[in-house]
Design a protein around this nucleic acid. Structure first.
Lengths: 185, 185, 185, 185
DNA sequence: GATGAATGAGTGTTCATTCAT
DNA sequence: GATGAATGAACACTCATTCAT
């Protein structure tokens, strides 16, 4: 099963979604197509498994960023979260791109975004409204995701990280200063 | 040609990307498959045509929001931009979703995001660094796009709009207060 | 009509049988597809017209070779025939190849071979049996045709011509020496 | 795989090249279209496989004719070669015709002629120039091929065979008497 | 549990031909 | 006579999935 997931990731990384056929994955993984279907109900399940695996790792890293250093400043902790998300997928950017596209096609992406949003909400210093958590998480993830999908070279640069941190902190600051619906009035 | 585009949009709205076959579109449009291929080189070209059409309309509306009322406050103008993007695709949300997914698959989304980012950059009050324009546009579009893809009911609500405006304004304010790389530190 | 035939020949020369579509021919000829169909019943008719045109020219040249110089030796006359056939199609070898392939597909080639065989029979010095005329003409034409289809560089060389002449003369000599069925016994 | 080849041959024999569609072949062979594609990369590969199979058999028979009887006369051996080629394709003349046409279209026929030419060259009593081997093989094969394509009734007659033998022997005799380029002078 | 040959519904696309203008 | 937009039958080919061994 691990071999299948690994094969799938390799295929994805090498040839993108177009090359991602169940037969190709099975061959790369060194198992028969029948065996693949013994572990994964269908092609989508395989894709979901890859996504889940990566999501879990990322979530773990996000959690670590939020809890690791109890004395860290808010900015330090936001920076940790940003870094965890940016570095997801261990640098397999093409595989990441493919998985993102596929998951977006299947579920609309909620499966991918919601856990991170929930995480942020649960660990946030302030109490945020639902829309606020939504926007905060999607703005952050969306920016990073765009950089991945568009294959931007600055994805892992310090200045990109800085701006992402600024985005989060400024929004949190604004929400704090003028809570919720009264906000832009 | 208009009939084909309209048929394509209807198919997309009714059955999503899965139902979007060239034969289905032709039938829905009331033309033969041959006629469809006289106007569109291939399936992707058809999809791109839909995307282009909507993008043009949206860009036009964004432009209007930025130039219409010369005496409007910054907040008023940002609100206009937000509204233009939220209301793109005339409410055909499923078609919008499908088109977004398809364009994301083909081009990585740059074709969709870049024009809006360029627009924002060109019409921004302040001078922004490249990464800043990138993040500002992708954070905004990404949040809206997520709401579309996840079929969030609050997409067109006032409070969602308020928060999006807040996101943009607070980031612009922060950039202004502490320009570029010195920023979060 | 001449324009259409010329356009057709150009298409054939440039892209072979694969590029030879009625629409492509019409466009190259500078007429509408409708006009093309006013002159040629269908695609095959167009192809046949090209073949006929070239066949007529070739036959004319063969005739000239046989009648031109009343005092020429048998070898001289055979050489003239060989040359006329080798030089058919005015050097448009790709068009020739395509036409040969197409005619072969349609009629089995009889339309192409029979007239030349008849010519040879009618103008032969000796009286040949049907099979003998058949073999003499097909051996000659077949050898040249193979050189065309296989795009042999020696097609127009002197030594190839020499050997073709030898082939014809030696066969005629053998037939003369030992007529018909008693032959190889 | 044997079933597919057999089905393909039957389709070819029954309806010629026009009826030769991959779906028709699969159906006739009693397998699914998917299975067909598991064994043959594409339509052309299937055609090539048929051609190869027949070519191999024919070559084997030619070889036998040349080596079988060490004491046979030159004429006896030539007759054996002629007979092997005439009888190729086990009497499925329409299939043979279709295959010839198809192979001619694809490769220009070299794939079909060259092996036989090579065989003749390698087993010839005399040493022949390249053009001479070319002409000898193409004249022979071309005559037979024409008889096949034009569906001549005398294809398998004794008198046709006699004349083919005569063609080969007289040419070989002429080459022997006056080698190469000096020949027809 | 593993295999992999077999399946077949489904897709995008081509191009000869027609006919109303 | 000329036009060219429209037609649609036909085709090659893919790939997720099954199931007998």
């Amino acid at each position: 099963m691990a071999a299948i997931l690994e094969g799938a990731s390799q295929i994805l990384e090498a040839g993108g979604l177009a090359a991602f056929t169940t037969n190709a994955v099975a061959e790369r993984a060194g198992v028969s197509i029948g065996t693949l279907y013994q572990y994964f109900a269908d092609k989508d399940a395989l894709l979901r498994a890859i996504a889940d695996r990566e999501l879990k790792v990322t979530l773990l890293n996000v959690a670590k960023a939020l809890t690791d250093d109890r004395e860290a400043s808010a900015e330090q902790r936001v920076r940790g979260v940003v870094r965890a998300i940016v570095n997801a997928f261990h640098g397999r950017q093409r595989a990441r791109k493919a998985v993102v596209q596929a998951v977006l096609s299947q579920t609309g992406g909620a499966a991918f975004n919601a856990p991170i949003a929930a995480f942020i909400a649960a660990n946030s210093l302030e109490t945020l409204k639902y829309e606020q958590t939504f926007i905060l998480s999607r703005a952050l993830i969306g920016s990073i995701r765009s950089a991945v999908l568009e294959e931007q070279s600055f994805l892992k640069s310090r200045s990109f990280e800085d701006e992402l941190v600024r985005l989060v902190l400024s929004y949190l600051g604004a929400v704090n200063a003028l809570p919720a619906s009264t906000a832009p009035g």
